Computed example of a mutant assay.
Amino acid sequence: MEAVKIQTKSKQYPVFIGAGVTANLQSFIKERFPKLSTVLIISDETVGSLYLDSLKAQVSELQVATFLVPSGETAKSFDHYYDCLTYALEQKLDRQSLIISFGGGVVGDLSGFVAASYMRGIPFIQVPTTILAHDSAVGGKVAINHPLGKNMIGAFHQPEAVFYDLNYLKSLPIKEIRSGFAEVIKHALIQDPSFYNWIQTNVTDLSDLKEGILQHSLVRGIEIKGMIVSEDERETGVRAYLNFGHTLGHAIEAECGYGVISHGEAVIIGMVFALKLSKQVTGLTFNEVDFTSWLKQLGYQVTLPAGLEPEKLLARMKQDKKSVSQKVRFVLLSQLGQPSLYEVSDDVLIASLSEF
């Protein structure tokens, strides 16, 4: 087991990473919450069918209620958010209650927002079950989607802890592995060129990720995110760099329809575009051919999905949270590990998207 400490202005909390770490979950809860009333586990139907009984056995001495939402991005809706709140009220959760988010990034975002808003905020713990959640489970950004934009309704609400049990990753389909590893690549590109070189050398087949390589990748990704979040908890500055690849990525997700293309696969396309744009705007020197060849080897698509129109993607990007006064701002790299925010004109974006 490894532990990474996350320090923000509002809270300090641990991220425990390793196979079997949820064996320590019950003792952690008892020690941290001596006056605990009820634990509500929010999960999705897929994770619930596979692992919910196992997790409940780990907290068998606590008073536990469970609630399942549908699997996939559609769970991050007003309707399912409302359903979670209704169930919490029916179970008579109070301010001494605790929510456990048990699932991937979708469940983490949804249940974290439930925790942030129920009785104006109760504590929650993240128990991620996907690789993607190594990014989303850390940092306290919780949200649901709106038809006009992804993650536009939400809050900053830090968890009490993250228990990242690698045993839950063993059943992930390759599409989810690919989606999650995109965020590992992002962390390397924006912060640590040596880590980027390491993963490019050591990760050549996502269907055969050795546990040691996976654990090191996740730990380093979490460390990088933790450093950035500790400096800028509420995304008023450098935390925006974590959105590298996401400006176009979120637009692709929205245009395709949430869940049609996975978050990470959309972000990969967004990062390839941002690197091309960086070469044009900042003069970045980067072996783009080598990078895209490696991505293709890992099974990623590196071009826009068919049928997406530049003008519609631009309209989506103008709804991005980094945009100001309908001006699109992109996270670009001047060098590997050196990101900055740049305002990019509509004309440049339309031309670049048309060529892309």
Rank of each mutant, 00 (worst) to 15 (best):
K322W: 11
Q191R: 15
K5T: 11
P123A: 13
V64H: 11
G337F: 15
G154H: 11
L353T: 01
S54E: 12
I228H: 10
F124H: 10
V107K: 04
Q280L: 13
N145C: 09
D83N: 13
T22R: 03
F28N: 00
G149Q: 13
S334G: 11
D53H: 08
K150L: 11
G105N: 10
E233A: 00
E90R: 13
V106S: 12
A143D: 10
L304V: 05
A115G: 02
P34W: 00
Y118P: 01
L110R: 05
A23V: 09
V281A: 05
I131T: 01
F273L: 02
T247C: 09
A19F: 06
T38N: 13
V39W: 11
D83T: 04
D53I: 01
I41R: 04
Q58P: 01
L166H: 06
D109F: 08
Y164D: 05
D79V: 14
S340V: 03
M152Q: 14
D320C: 06
S340F: 09
Q7Y: 06
S10Y: 09
S49N: 13
E343K: 13
P34R: 00
E211A: 13
V162T: 09
F181Q: 00
N287E: 14
T129L: 10
E309Q: 12
Y258Q: 01
S101L: 04
C84H: 09
L169R: 02
C256W: 02
I177F: 07
M227I: 04
L336R: 11
E233Q: 09
A315N: 13
I252Q: 04
I41Q: 04
